[in-house]
């Protein structure tokens, strides 16, 4: 049975004339954690943004090829003109290298994506916020100060908040761009555990610099080199 959820065919991507991806073809399986490694500055993060079309906000970038997503058992072209970008980004969440909570309270940060999606009922919002924070192992630490500023949290807490914020939309796919590289090893360890637990509900793609991290948590490793994705083995 075909268990894949993302299918990429002959994907080319260039940025200001610089070719970053030169014909990438790959499919990702459901409920797996795939790590993407490779030399820095060669477009690993950019590759992630081709899946949620976030690169389109960057001037000077151009894309060719096909990215498909299996939504409700049907393959849908991500770049079709009928695709609602906002809806796509709710299905394909992203977490960045540097935690980026918005300058508002913890609760408002969590409720923000719901607000964007037009969810208004207070009870529902409350329940979803709590559930997402619990899934991100953050609830116990912040339940007493939901209304204080998110910027007062520690780096690791901020990153878990950002993950929880992405989870609240119940995405099918979660993209992580070096999620631990701005954190100390304790905080990073917590995020790693969290990533593994996320596999139950989502498909996870993660850019990472650390091969030891990859060997600890990833199901497979893809090396981005010379514009191609190569399946590489994981040394355990």
């Amino acid at each position: 049975m075909d268990n894949s959820i993302i299918k990429i065919t002959d994907l080319h991507f260039s940025y200001n004339g610089l070719k970053v991806l030169k014909g990438v073809t790959h499919s990702f399986e459901k409920n797996t954690l795939t790590a993407i490694t490779g030399p820095s500055g060669k477009g690993k993060s950019t590759f992630l943004t081709t899946l949620n079309r976030l690169w389109e906000d960057v001037p000077g970038a151009a894309l060719q090829g096909c990215v498909e997503l299996k939504i409700a058992e049907k393959w849908r072209d991500v770049y079709a003109s009928s695709m609602d970008i906002a809806a796509l980004r709710r299905m394909v969440g992203m977490v960045f290298q540097i935690p980026n909570p918005l300058p508002m309270s913890i609760f408002r940060n969590m409720a923000f994506p719901l607000k964007l999606a037009g969810v208004k009922e207070k009870d529902q919002v409350q329940a979803k916020v709590q559930e997402a924070l619990e899934r991100a192992f953050l609830w116990d630490e912040v339940k007493d100060r939901l209304h204080s500023s998110a910027l007062e949290l520690s780096g690791g807490q901020q990153q878990r908040l950002c993950i929880a914020r992405a989870l609240i939309l119940e995405p099918m796919v979660l993209l992580f761009d070096e999620p631990t590289s701005s954190l100390d090893y304790q905080a990073a360890g917590m995020i790693e555990d969290l990533l593994v637990s996320l596999k139950e509900s989502c498909t996870v793609l993660m850019v990472s610099h650390y091969l030891d991290q990859v060997s600890r948590i990833a199901d497979s490793r893809l090396e981005l080199a010379d514009g191609k994705l190569l399946l590489s083995n994981i040394s355990r």
């Binding site: 906000d57 960045f96 964007l116 999606a117």
Partner: peptide
């Protein structure tokens, strides 16, 4: 640029990004 894409990555439309994040900022 980091703050610019935060809300976009959460599914905000360009207008929502402007109204909820960029203008207040």
């Amino acid at each position: 640029p980091g703050l610019r894409i935060t809300a976009l990555a959460l599914g905000a439309s360009k207008m929502q990004n402007i109204v909820y994040v960029l203008l207040p900022r």
